[in-house]
C-alpha cells in the first residue's frame, strides 16, 4: 500500500520504482479509492477536457462578470501576444490563465485546481507547455496526477484555502502544482520536480487574499495570469539545474506557519488590503449597496 505525507517521500517512491511522481500518485489513488486505474485515468482525462474547453472559451470571451469588474482581458493578451517581451509560450500561458479565470467569473464551467479562485494556473501552463513540447495525452494526464499529488501534500501539511492561509495557499499551491507538472512534462527527474515546486512556492509565500467586494475577481483573475508565468519560470529554473536551498517540505512548513500568522483581514474576509482601498469600497457599495 503506497502512502506519502511529504514531497520528499513522493520523490523517493518515484526513484525507487523508476517511474514518475504522477504514476506513484495514480497508484496511491487506485489503492485508496479502490477504483481501477483506467477509470481514474478516464476521470482525469474528463477534467483535462473541461480545462481545455475553459481555455478555448476564455480566449474568445468578451462577456463581463456579474459585477462588471472582469472580462475580456484574455482576448487582449491573446491578440497582443507576439508583440510582447514575453511573447510566445509564456504570454500564451498568461492569456490561457486569465481566460479560464474570466470564464469562472461569468459562471462558466471550470475545474477547481486546487480551488476556483486559482483555477486558471495549472490548465493554462500545462496547455502552453504541452503544445511547445508536443506531449501526448497520456503524458498530460500523468502530469495532472503529479500536480494533484503535490496539492494533496500541501493540503495535508499546510492549506489550500485562502480563508486559512491567504492567497499563498490558493495561487501559491497552484504555482507549485503547475511547476511540478511542467518539470515532469519537460522530462525532468523527480528531484527536479521537487526543486521546481519549492522555487515556485517559495516566491509566493505570504501572499494576501484580499479580494475586492469579496468576489473571486480582483485581483484573482489577473493574478492567475501572473502566477502562470511564475510557475513556468520556476519549471525552467529547475530544468536548467537550479536548486532550491530550502527543501520543498520545509518550504511547505514555512507556508503553513506564515498562513497561521497572517492576520484574518487578509484571509478571504475582504476586511483588509486591496479590499479596503477607497476604490474597492466604492465598488463594493455599487454592487451590494452598502
Amino acid at each position: 500500500m503506497i502512502s506519502f505525507n511529504s514531497i520528499h517521500e513522493l520523490i523517493d517512491l518515484a526513484k525507487e520504482n523508476n517511474t514518475t511522481i504522477g504514476n506513484i500518485v495514480l497508484t496511491y489513488e487506485e489503492e485508496s479509492s479502490m477504483k481501477p486505474r483506467e477509470e481514474l485515468k478516464a476521470a482525469m482525462l474528463e477534467n483535462w477536457q473541461v480545462m481545455q474547453e475553459s481555455i478555448s472559451r476564455g480566449l474568445v470571451n468578451n462577456e463581463k462578470s456579474l459585477s462588471g469588474l472582469t472580462g475580456g482581458d484574455a482576448v487582449k493578451l491573446f491578440h497582443y501576444n507576439d508583440k510582447g517581451y514575453t511573447g510566445g509560450t509564456v504570454m500564451m500561458a498568461a492569456a490561457n490563465a486569465v481566460g479560464v479565470s474570466e470564464v469562472n467569473a461569468v459562471m462558466g464551467r471550470i475545474v477547481a485546481c486546487p480551488t476556483a479562485g486559482s483555477c486558471g494556473i495549472v490548465p493554462a501552463t500545462i496547455k502552453a507547455a504541452s503544445e511547445k513540447n508536443h506531449n501526448s495525452e497520456d503524458e498530460i494526464i500523468e502530469a495532472l496526477f503529479t500536480a494533484a499529488g503535490i496539492g494533496l501534500v500541501i493540503e495535508s501539511n499546510a492549506s489550500i484555502a485562502g480563508a486559512y492561509g491567504g492567497c499563498q495557499a490558493e495561487c501559491g499551491s497552484a504555482a507549485g502544482m503547475a511547476a511540478g507538472a511542467l518539470v515532469q512534462l519537460a522530462g525532468g527527474s523527480p528531484d527536479q520536480v521537487g526543486h521546481g515546486v519549492a522555487l515556485a512556492i517559495k516566491n509566493l509565500l505570504g501572499l494576501a487574499c484580499d479580494p475586492v467586494a469579496g468576489l473571486v475577481e480582483v485581483p484573482c483573475v489577473k493574478r492567475n495570469g501572473f502566477v502562470a508565468v511564475h510557475a513556468m519560470v520556476a519549471a525552467d529554473m529547475a530544468m536548467a539545474g537550479v536548486e532550491s536551498v530550502i527543501p520543498i517540505d520545509e518550504v511547505i512548513d514555512a507556508m503553513d506557519r506564515i498562513g497561521r500568522s497572517l492576520p484574518r483581514s487578509v484571509k478571504e474576509t475582504a476586511e483588509g488590503g486591496l479590499a479596503t482601498t477607497q476604490t474597492a469600497k466604492k465598488i463594493s457599495k455599487r454592487i451590494f449597496g452598502k
Binding site: V50, N104, I110, V111, A112, P114, I160
Partner: peptide, 8 residues
C-alpha cells in the same frame, strides 16, 4: 485537488 468540475 484537481476537481471538482463546477460552474464558477
Amino acid at each position: 485537488i484537481v476537481g471538482p468540475i463546477m460552474i464558477g
